[in-house]
């Protein structure tokens, strides 16, 4: 099962390698030409030099120009076409079952709602090695939900729902940040993404359901900066006498 981290790493490395190579070759060639054809005394005078007031004529070298242009076009186009297959994979997502989380951004925090109605603010817990589908939207202004380490990102736009997915293949704490300027608290609009083992995750869900208010929210916010912590975390107390549908999903 390919995670988005895998997809990104693979493409990024190829791009970085080729980009560095092309950059070095082209820039070296540029500087080499500039140096090689530097003006020195004692050049032949019979060259066809430009004169003031002449009407421009296209310099020659058209073939060389087109060969270079053609090469660069082939490199760029083939690279992009190659990534297109990956794009289709990312768009469709892995075929395995997973869990679904509704993500809602608001100034300046994130709310997460799970399939069984459990909600949490500032802290998103997900099981490891499971496809997590997120439906991202916003309550007020344009935010962008993203976690760099897991290579997942989605615009949170009021009135729109942006659906995407990710898989965390290691437990631990990751950082959720806002990637679109959303107001004075934008800079500190972070949340924690906690990846845990499947059974831990079930416990966490149960805890959220019972414990309610103190949920993840209190210590969940990453602390630094002026987190405008509304106590929206309390919403999770809305005692969902839930049918406790534990959708563990992809423990394969």
């Amino acid at each position: 099962m390919q995670t988005r981290v895998d997809v990104f790493d693979e493409i990024f490395l190829v791009f970085l390698g080729l980009g560095t190579l092309v950059g070095i070759v082209v820039i070296s060639y540029t500087l080499y030409n500039a140096y090689k054809y530097r003006d020195v005394d004692g050049r032949e005078k019979d060259e066809d030099l430009p004169t003031l007031g002449e009407l421009p004529t296209g310099g020659g070298g058209g073939r060389k120009l087109f060969v270079s242009f053609g090469l660069s076009a082939i490199v760029v186009i083939s690279l992009i076409v190659w990534t297109y297959g990956m794009l289709l994979y990312v768009e469709d997502g892995p075929s395995e079952d997973g869990i679904e989380v509704d993500v809602e951004g608001y100034t300046f925090a994130w709310d997460f709602e799970y399939e069984n109605g459990v909600t949490s603010t500032g802290e998103m817990a997900v099981p490891v090695d499971t496809t997590v589908w997120i439906d991202v939207t916003s309550r007020d202004v344009w935010h962008t939900f993203g976690s760099q380490e897991l290579r997942v990102k989605a615009d949170a736009i009021p009135g729109e729902t942006d659906r995407t997915w990710f898989i965390a293949d290691e437990t631990g704490e990751y950082r959720i940040e806002c990637f679109e300027l959303c107001g004075p608290g934008h800079s500190g609009m972070n949340a924690d993404l906690i990846v845990m083992e499947e059974d831990e995750f079930q416990n966490w869900l149960d805890e959220q359901q019972q414990g309610g208010g103190d949920g993840g929210s209190g210590e969940g916010a990453s602390g630094d900066g002026q987190q405008n912590e509304t106590d929206a975390g309390n919403e999770s107390t809305d005692a969902q006498n839930s049918t406790n549908e534990t959708n563990g999903g992809g423990e394969s």
């Binding site: 997809v7 990104f8 493409i11 990024f12 791009f15 980009g19 092309v22 950059g23 820039i27 760029v76 690279l79 992009i80 990534t83 990956m86 794009l87 990312v90 962008t144 993203g146 760099q148 290579r151 990102k153 990637f179 679109e180």
Partner: peptide, 20 residues
């Protein structure tokens, strides 16, 4: 250099991660 790093953004999959 600006042009080469722009090609990265042209690949939509990479653009997803580079956005913002």
């Amino acid at each position: 250099l600006g042009g080469i790093t722009g090609v990265f953004l042209g690949a939509v999959v990479l653009d997803y991660e580079f956005r913002g």
